[in-house]
Amino acid sequence: MIEVKNVTKKYGSFKAVDDISFEVNDGEIVGFLGPNGAGKSTTMNMITGFIDTTEGEIIINGNDISKKPRKAKKQIGYMPEGVPLYNDLTVKEFVNYMAELKLVNARHRQEKVEKVIEETGLKEVENKLIRNLSRGYKQRVGLAGALVGDPKVIILDEPTVGLDPKQITEIRDLIKELGKNHTVILSTHILSEASQICEKVIIINKGKIIAIDTPENLEKKVIKGNAILITVEDPKNNMENLKEKMPDILDIKLEKQIEDGTKQYLITSKKDSDIRKQLFEILPKEDIVIFELKKVEATLEEAFIKLIENNKGGEE
């Protein structure tokens, strides 16, 4: 379990992280979301003890990272941003070195190194120099370095940056697998990633936490009504008057005019009413032909943008 209590990090008078608190329970996969420069890496660097907090405390499974660094750090596997590696070492030497650094008992070291190399799919390149590996493999080596010695907490800073789609899927699957018996914190600015693999999302902006919730709840939170995207042929421009005929409609907005003469509108209606059936009944009477109609699902993307915008509004 990770407890972050009222943590602030100041650089001079600039607050990179401003009084954040949250908890991550055992076996949870938590995503850290935020635009670039929001304070994600700073927070992770504080949790892993790479940098000190200016105020507040961070407790890893009961051990304060600044007071009992040895005990606390022993429980953490960290893959920093950009995946720094020792390029002069081979994969096996690197993982072995990480195991030594992490105080893995010499008797079990060999076996644990082998196990982690196996798990991360590095067996075939274990004797290659890291500098000669492709980006995807390097990422896995970084992951292997974080995993060796079975730390209970895994912290990954932007684990999928720079990978091709297939590698991204592989790494994500691996992280999900890890989540079964580890506590995982990962940062990302790819929202779909967070909604796919994380059970809980922490959205951070300008050093402040603006939301902590499950991806689904966050998505629900931002939806004020039902949105429907509709493409119609409407020679008499009757769409504009639709609002009077259907009181449930809150707003009709012309999204775009398509070359073949059809128009696309975004219709928002009250939260609890589904107007699709009504649309099909009423529109033909108004000489409007429906080409396409679909319900718009809110995404984490929108939740994110909305939350960040709200946050801005609050400040000004």
């Binding site: 660097n45 892993t48 003890g49 790479f50 660094p69 040895r70 005990k71 750090k73 022993k74 953490i76 960290y78 920093p80 941003e81 950009g82 720094p84 590696l85 020792y86 390029n87 990480m98 650094l101 992490k102 105080l103 370095g145």
Partner: peptide
């Protein structure tokens, strides 16, 4: 420069 100090300094070693 290469960032490996992050690996070193986040390890339990003093």
């Amino acid at each position: 420069k290469t960032g490996t100090e992050q690996l070193l300094l986040t390890s339990p070693r003093s």
